[in-house]
Amino acid sequence: MKRLAVYCGANSGADPLFADTAEQLGAEMAKRDIGLVYGGGKLGLMGIIADSVLAGNGEVHGVIPEALVDLEVAHQGLTELHIVTSMHERKAKMTDLCDGFIAMPGGIGTLDELFEAWSWNALGYHAKPFLLLNTGGFWDSMISFVDHVVANGFISEARREQMLVATQIGDAIEQLAHAANGAKQGMTW
């Protein structure tokens, strides 16, 4: 894997573990020479992971809508900052730039990005894996809800199995690398 898109909050969240994990994930990505693709912001978990990858001499590609640049939330110290016109263009560009996706704790934007990556995968627009980094059990309730949706016949078991979950950073990266490698070899993802 050359690059991972990381979806995460523009806030740091209530639990300091979220910020610590963002910093650790960034450091591990830089150590493994995996570039970061993210929303281009300087605030919250977004800024923390970008700064961490940069501190490890890693590559960081931010993708931000023009309207947010104007609000002065864009991170100006990145390897490359892509300025786009819309949120839709942002998500498409992030998908083009990455080999897989990690969802860390975040809000409505993180959920939107995660579910769009999953639905685009389901529709065959890409074959890139995605994973919930379940820091401090943040995603437990959503995992239970997705299982409820499966039990009610709206998501297949095979589609559910695509939603990878890890609590440890090393395991998360390994699961994504394994799934991405499988997709490159023609396995259904």
Score class of each variant (00 low, 15 high):
residue 65 P to K: 01
residue 65 P to G: 04
residue 66 E to F: 06
residue 66 E to I: 04
residue 66 E to D: 10
residue 67 A to T: 08
residue 67 A to E: 04
residue 67 A to P: 02
residue 67 A to M: 11
residue 67 A to Q: 08
residue 67 A to Y: 08
residue 68 L to F: 03
residue 69 V to E: 05
residue 69 V to C: 11
residue 69 V to H: 03
residue 69 V to K: 06
residue 69 V to R: 05
residue 69 V to T: 10
residue 69 V to L: 05
residue 70 D to H: 08
residue 70 D to T: 06
residue 71 L to W: 04
residue 71 L to M: 12
residue 71 L to E: 10
residue 71 L to A: 12
residue 71 L to T: 12
residue 71 L to I: 09
residue 72 E to Q: 10
residue 72 E to R: 09
residue 72 E to M: 06
residue 72 E to L: 09
residue 72 E to W: 04
residue 73 V to F: 00
residue 73 V to R: 01
residue 73 V to I: 02
residue 73 V to M: 00
residue 73 V to E: 00
residue 73 V to C: 01
residue 74 A to G: 08
residue 74 A to T: 00
residue 74 A to I: 01
residue 74 A to P: 06
residue 75 H to S: 03
residue 75 H to Q: 03
residue 76 Q to L: 12
residue 76 Q to D: 14
residue 76 Q to E: 15
residue 76 Q to G: 11
residue 76 Q to S: 15
residue 76 Q to A: 14
residue 77 G to P: 09
residue 77 G to K: 11
residue 77 G to I: 02
residue 78 L to Y: 03
residue 78 L to I: 03
residue 78 L to A: 06
residue 78 L to Q: 04
residue 78 L to G: 08
residue 79 T to N: 06
residue 79 T to P: 13
residue 79 T to L: 04
residue 79 T to Q: 04
residue 79 T to G: 15
residue 80 E to Y: 14
residue 80 E to F: 14
residue 80 E to A: 15
residue 80 E to V: 12
residue 80 E to S: 14
residue 80 E to T: 14
residue 80 E to R: 15
residue 80 E to W: 12
residue 80 E to C: 14
residue 82 H to D: 15
residue 82 H to Y: 14
residue 82 H to W: 11
residue 82 H to Q: 14
residue 82 H to V: 13
residue 82 H to P: 14
residue 82 H to R: 13
residue 83 I to G: 08
residue 83 I to T: 15
residue 84 V to G: 11
residue 84 V to Q: 05
residue 84 V to M: 07
residue 84 V to H: 05
residue 84 V to F: 04
residue 85 T to I: 03
residue 85 T to G: 13
residue 85 T to S: 15
residue 85 T to R: 15
residue 86 S to E: 05
residue 86 S to W: 04
residue 86 S to Q: 07
residue 86 S to A: 07
residue 87 M to Q: 00
residue 88 H to C: 09
residue 88 H to P: 12
residue 88 H to N: 13
residue 88 H to F: 07
residue 88 H to A: 13
residue 88 H to G: 13
residue 89 E to L: 13
residue 89 E to Y: 09
residue 90 R to L: 09
residue 91 K to D: 00
residue 91 K to C: 00
residue 91 K to A: 00
residue 91 K to Q: 00
residue 92 A to H: 13
residue 92 A to P: 07
residue 92 A to Y: 05
residue 93 K to A: 12
residue 93 K to S: 10
residue 93 K to H: 10
residue 93 K to I: 06
residue 93 K to V: 08
residue 93 K to N: 05
residue 93 K to G: 05
residue 93 K to P: 07
residue 93 K to L: 15
residue 93 K to T: 13
residue 94 M to E: 02
residue 94 M to V: 01
residue 94 M to S: 02
residue 95 T to E: 09
residue 96 D to I: 05
residue 96 D to L: 07
residue 96 D to P: 05
residue 96 D to V: 07
residue 97 L to I: 07
residue 97 L to K: 08
residue 97 L to D: 06
residue 97 L to Q: 08
residue 97 L to M: 11
